[in-house]
């Protein structure tokens, strides 16, 4: 397949039947669907149908409208909030952070973002109950903060290594 910017395309592909193809992430047109796709579609559609049937008929199942709203809020939260923040952070990082430390900064941001997403509900502690003190017993904010701090310490170390290596390479360059 073609690597973006490299122009190396060697494969043979089937075009879409209607000729109206989209493009892949790296640019080339999407290939035609695989002839084996129905081997995946059939069990997949059966599972989706079974899940939908269960949601609609199970005792104590969710009200469909509430289920759909929850689903839609999840999609919106990702597509309209999390993803734009991630993309924006990446753009800012590319503009503001020197190239030599950009990779450690990227990993630091990825890890920090994941820690926030995975830990926010525990940090908020809305499920804590005096009735059951052994549930949610930790200082989650502190633990997430320590985890993120350790990550940035590691990334700072990596950045230092990259700076030192970069300066050595520069020093070795002929005048």
């Amino acid at each position: 397949m073609g690597v973006e910017g490299a122009g190396l395309v060697t494969s043979t592909r089937d075009a879409h039947p209607d000729g109206a193809t989209g493009v892949t992430l790296s640019g080339p047109p999407e290939p035609a669907p695989s002839p084996y796709r129905w081997a995946w579609y059939l069990p997949g559609l059966v599972a989706v149908g079974w899940g939908g049937y269960g949601l609609l008929t199970a005792p104590m199942g969710p009200e469909p409208v509430k289920w759909i709203i929850f689903l839609a809020v999840g999609i919106a939260a990702h597509d309209l909030l999390l993803a734009p923040i991630a993309v924006g952070a990446g753009l800012l990082l590319a503009r503001l952070v020197p190239a030599v430390v950009r990779a450690p900064a990227q990993v630091g941001l990825i890890g920090t973002g994941i820690a926030v997403v995975a830990g926010f509900s525990l940090v908020l502690g809305r499920g804590v109950s005096a009735d059951v003190p052994s549930a949610l017993p930790f200082n989650y904010a502190g633990r997430v903060a320590v985890l993120v701090a350790l990550l940035w310490v590691a990334m700072a170390g990596w950045a230092v290594v990259r700076i030192v290596r970069s300066s050595r390479i520069s020093a070795d360059q002929p005048e």
Partner: peptide
């Protein structure tokens, strides 16, 4: 029940993306 939908949707998605 949503787990069934999620795993089924993953199977369908894999089928639609086999060539890619």
């Amino acid at each position: 029940w949503t787990a069934w939908i999620a795993i089924g949707a993953i199977l369908v998605h894999v089928g639609s993306k086999l060539a890619i």
